[in-house]
């Protein structure tokens, strides 16, 4: 038995070299297979989204289908050169976005139902009514608009950051790859163990 395993050494060495070479290529960032990902967020009636492969490259001109809560197709659009897409919908319930990037690549993303702004606003106004009206030079509506605008601008940066973070999380990391190799060798070890037991009995 020992002899036989020994005789496999050159072959195994060679293949291990191939693996090492591949790991080296991993570092030169040539890696990443092509899983597709997408994220989207809601802003009023408008929905913005972005679709990209795990390495961060965009899915250009891919078909985007939008389904409502009951699984009915509402509308269809395509991504632009940067993999971004946006559409307007009155649907307040949850939405399901399905993007097919061709050659069997497909990704689904669910958007939660919209927070009803009116409700929030009413809540705020009720609270405010109970308080003494503050003395301001700006009208209440105007103030609200200003706040909305400022918050939107601030949130945009945050949203981009979240998308970037998600992209990074979706990237393949070396730890998983090495772990995967370990699993494979382990599985074959178990198979060998079972086979040997069978032969012995």
């Amino acid at each position: 038995m020992k002899k036989k395993i020994k005789s496999f050494k050159p072959a195994i060495c060679l293949i291990l070299t191939i693996i090492c070479l591949q790991l080296f290529l991993f570092f030169s960032s040539l890696v990443y297979a092509h899983k597709v990902n997408t994220h989207a967020y809601r802003e009023g009636d408008k929905i913005f989204g972005e679709c990209y492969f795990v390495d961060g490259s965009p899915c250009k001109n891919s078909k985007v289908e939008v389904y409502n809560f009951n699984g009915q197709k509402i509308l269809e659009t395509t991504t632009d050169e940067k993999g971004k897409y946006s559409f307007i919908t009155k649907e307040k319930d949850g939405l399901k976005i399905v993007i097919s990037a061709g050659e069997g690549h497909r990704v689904e993303y669910k958007i939660k139902e919209a927070v009803d702004r009116k409700e929030v606003k009413e809540h705020i106004t009720k609270d405010k009514k109970s308080q003494v009206e503050p003395k301001t030079w700006v009208g209440r509506d105007e103030m609200k608009q200003i706040i909305d605008e400022v918050v939107d601008v601030k949130l945009k940066g945050l949203r981009n950051e979240i998308i970037d973070l998600r992209k990074q999380m979706d990237k393949i990391n070396l730890r998983d790859i090495i772990g995967g190799i370990g699993y494979i060798l382990g599985i074959w070890g178990i198979i060998m163990f079972i086979k040997r037991k069978k032969n012995a009995s």
Binding site: A11, I19, Q22, F26, V31, A33, G180, G189
Partner: peptide
């Protein structure tokens, strides 16, 4: 041999 080639195949898919 099978096991090592199995992991070679596993990694090959990451080289894009």
């Amino acid at each position: 041999k099978v096991a090592v080639l199995s992991s070679a195949f596993f990694i090959a898919s990451f080289i894009r």
